[in-house]
């Protein structure tokens, strides 16, 4: 197992992935296929081409190889150079996403920690800080009776305007604006059962979005403005610490830690929705990044640890 010196895990480590040792089971996130042919459900529209993970040396045109915090390689997820306005849902390729798939052992506290950094492609002059709309981490979790997405998203820029605050995956229960998914998303337990993505599921690309980067899928954490280090050129990358802790028994958030800040999130419930067929007890961690302009943006994860107690 990797060196955990830079981490503060809970009692039991589920996985500790240092990408100098390979991909560790991270894979692209793609839509489900229909049952009658190898093709997507019509309802997934253009949400079919999220950038896959790669082992990155963080090499730049003028600086050369930056490497990672603990060696040479990190896991990079990249957007394509295409973006929709902040008030629109993402388009194919405007997000890069990577997922790992396992199942729960308990329903206690669950913690994700990672060392990561982010930058814009050095393909045009300019530091590109406002080319990055958002990035973050979430778990797709379930038990035998419900499903919840718990996660945190750093809203960096919306339509070119710097925002720099943290949001949680939590649907606005007072919102009557659409979630945005119509039709089927997966096969049911029986042929007659229709499965669809309801409010609270897949906020990364669903929900009604506003020009300022807010959405009815994300909850803005109060007093969470934080100017993360984004150095003087896109090829100077500084590694950041991130930690999110949740309470699966109470189905609520516990805390978010980022660099020098820590937010107490106790009492903030996740958006718990009905059971989905066949995904009982899933525990799927996901990292993602979204571009705000027609410029590639990159999230690099040096290492990531999930733990529970």
């Amino acid at each position: 197992m990797m060196d955990l010196n830079d981490y503060s895990p809970l009692k039991h480590v589920i996985f500790a992935d240092d990408f100098d040792s390979g991909y560790n089971g991270w894979i692209t996130l793609m839509p489900n296929f229909r049952q009658d042919k190898f093709d997507y459900y019509d309802s997934f529209k253009g949400w079919t081409a999220w950038g896959p993970p790669m082992l990155s040396s963080a090499t730049f045109p003028y600086a050369g190889t930056h490497g990672s915090l603990h060696g040479t390689y990190s896991m990079k997820v990249a957007s394509k150079p295409i973006a929709a306005p902040a008030e629109k849902r993402p388009v194919a390729g405007s997000l890069g996403m990577a997922i790992k798939r396992l199942t729960h052992r308990t329903e206690g506290l669950l913690k994700c920690e990672m060392w990561y950094t982010f930058t814009a492609e050095q393909s045009i002059p300019g530091i590109g800080e406002n080319a990055i709309r958002a990035f973050g981490f979430f778990w797709d979790t379930a038990n035998a009776s419900s499903r919840t997405h718990f996660g945190a998203r750093y809203l960096n820029s919306a339509n070119g305007v710097m925002k720099q605050h943290w949001q949680l995956f939590k649907a606005d229960e007072s919102s009557t604006e659409p979630w945005g998914f119509e039709g089927s998303s997966a096969p049911g337990d029986s042929p007659d059962e229709k499965v669809t993505l309801v409010r609270g599921v897949d906020a990364t690309w669903l929900g009604t979005r506003k020009p300022d980067g807010t959405s009815n899928g994300f909850y803005d954490i109060p007093d969470s403005t934080q100017k993360l280090c984004y150095n003087e050129t896109p090829d100077k990358i500084n590694w950041h610490y991130f930690a999110l802790t949740i309470d699966l028994a109470k189905q609520e958030y516990v805390s978010l830690e980022s660099v020098d800040r820590k937010w107490d999130l106790r009492g903030i419930k996740g958006t718990v929705v009905q059971r989905y067929p066949r995904i009982d007890w899933i525990l799927n961690p996901v990292v993602f990044i979204e571009t705000d302009t027609n410029r590639r943006v990159f999230l690099y994860v040096d290492s990531i640890v999930n733990s529970y107690e």
Binding site: G51, M54, L55, S56, S57, T59, T72, Y73, A78, K80
Partner: peptide, 8 residues
């Protein structure tokens, strides 16, 4: 295709 890192 999109660029893919292959240094490893």
């Amino acid at each position: 295709s999109e660029p893919y890192e292959t240094g490893w």
